[in-house]
């Protein structure tokens, strides 16, 4: 099937950033296959991963050959958020990551869908899928936060641990024409509302500055990302051009 590759440099960097977010989170969620707490979650996480992979394919195809971009770039060439590369941790960590990211992606795609830019068709399509991802994360946050003592503690710990990675979502990306301060306040309002209803405290740590994390958009990644990439790229690098 035919695709259109763009040559606009700023659009390319935005497509790479959003495409890498989707690709990396898709791979992380795929790691749950065979390990999820219940069968329904196994299926749910794989479905969410598949939606994200579809988005990644469209976005990376705007830049170049999707397989080359996914399988042959080195770690420093990936511009995904550090949030999405964080290891799955326990189920609560995965849900906290989903809540933070899907809320961001939902708001971002809503805005992109309303515009007339290159990303509008994909955003209009994907935002409907992401609405389900966000709903899934919200339901689990409520269930774990307002569940047993143990589930509450673990959910609280997960929300706090990932908090410092959330500021990066609102740093400017070349070629992404969105109102970031408005996006950030809508994100904070939505996440705060879910956490409160889940009887969870909104984490107090910094989301920007020296103690916050986040230089993924500049190609700097956390330690576990290299290992994730090695696994993701191994087959393609060992058997170039392999296909099913």
């Amino acid at each position: 099937m035919s695709t259109d590759v763009t040559t606009d440099a700023t659009v390319t960097s935005a497509a790479l950033a959003l495409g890498d977010d989707a690709l990396v989170l898709s791979h992380r969620l795929g790691e749950w296959a065979g390990h999820a707490p219940v069968l329904e979650e196994e299926v749910a996480l794989a479905n969410i991963a598949l939606d994200l992979l579809g988005q990644a394919r469209v976005l990376l195809s705007l830049v170049g050959d999707e397989d080359e971009l996914a399988y042959l770039r080195e770690e420093r060439a990936f511009t995904n958020l550090q949030l999405v590369e964080q290891p799955n941790g326990d189920f609560a960590h995965t849900i906290a990551r989903q809540l933070y990211f899907s809320t961001y992606q939902y708001l971002l795609y809503t805005e992109l869908a309303a515009g007339d830019g290159l990303f509008a068709p994909l955003a209009a399509k994907a935002v409907k899928e992401v609405a389900y991802h966000r709903d899934h994360a919200e339901q689990w946050t409520l269930r774990l936060g307002d569940g047993t003592d143990v589930s509450h503690q673990r959910m609280q710990r997960a929300c706090a641990a990932l908090w410092r990675f959330t500021g990066e979502m609102f740093q400017p990306v070349a070629g992404l024409d969105v109102d970031l301060p408005a996006l950030e306040s809508a994100w904070a309002a939505s996440v705060t509302d879910v956490l409160r209803r889940a009887t969870l405290a909104v984490p107090e740590g910094p989301r920007s500055g020296a103690w916050a994390a986040g230089a993924g958009r500049q190609g700097l990644h956390t330690e576990s990302f290299g290992r994730m990439l090695a696994e993701m790229q191994h087959l393609h690098r060992s058997h170039p051009g392999a296909s099913w």
Partner: peptide, 14 residues
């Protein structure tokens, strides 16, 4: 079908 553009977040959806 939920209208994605302009849909409010928060408890309203659920």
């Amino acid at each position: 079908v939920a209208e994605p553009v302009g849909l409010r977040l928060g408890p309203t959806r659920t």
